[in-house]
Amino acid sequence: MKADKCGLFFESYGQENQIFPSPVQKTCLGAFLLFLLIVPFILDSYYLSLFNLIFIAVIGAVSLNLITGICGQISLGHGAFMGVGAYATGYFMNLGINFFEALLLGGLVASLVGIVFGLPSLRLKGIYLAIATLAAQLILEYVFLHWDSVTGGSNGLALDAPAIFNFYFDNDLKMFYLLFFFALISTLAISNLMRSKYGRAFVSIRDFYLSAEVIGINLFQYKLYAFGISSFFAGIAGGLAAVYAMYITPEQFGIHLSISYLAMIIIGGMGKIIGSVFGAVFITLLPEFLSIVSQHLSAFFPDISTYLLGLKEGIFGLILILFLIFEPEGLAHRWHLIKAYFKLYPFAH
């Protein structure tokens, strides 16, 4: 009997570059996706809405991870770029353009704005770029609030439910499949980008920009690509958030949103796609979890609900600090350790 090989043996670069190299991984992922397809029929709309928020957060987090975790350019303006996508999508939809095209246009507008605010990255890096993107965030917030004719100002902008060929996505169940589709596509697209020439260029810019330039990468061009692609997906996430809520207000896209997306990629693990997914799940569920806990505690502390807002913010900050100090590699690293443990299970070494 021929002894079969044990483990993964790559015989070409192509094999090694696959997104899912092992059959086990493919099976597990397939089973998980199948599970996600079936699960909405069992859940009520509260849990479905959580899933939907997670899908939107996944797109946003993966796209932020592209610019910050993979290309190393710190962006404090991601929330505002999402806002640009949201407003552009809403604006085009209200003009009568159909949902799908409006969403793509929204992504493109966000991408353009991202590139404009990425221009300073020609000269700036590290902390200076972070501050420039912070300025972008605050300037865009001001535009959302004061460009009344397009954004509706502080009144906000109302939208219709998204429709494709007269099929309206007007409840959580239908939205689930729409958002699931986009989250899957975006995540796969960015994973795929990672193993292309562009992805490798981004990583080399992050690791050491001078060496990257020496081996012939046009820093400026690739940084702008990174800003453009990342903002495109941010715009898609924003547009989806807009049609999901069916209402856009400037407050949704404040600096707190940028910060919570940064927290997602930090907690999930910088530069790891799977990490962004974990981070998105974690940060989206955290406030819900705290609300549930406070409901149970309200028997003992009757006025806990008045403190809930402060508590949520404080615990968010605390978790961020604790992760940075004790688990700087994020949940993706922990996931990797768990997998490694079970892979070798009875024999740890």
């Binding site: 927290a263 913010e313 404080g314 615990i315 968010f316 900050g317 605390l318 961020l320 600090i321």
Partner: peptide, 8 residues
């Protein structure tokens, strides 16, 4: 994170 904690 520190700023969130202090604000809270």
């Amino acid at each position: 994170g520190l700023s969130s904690v202090l604000k809270a």
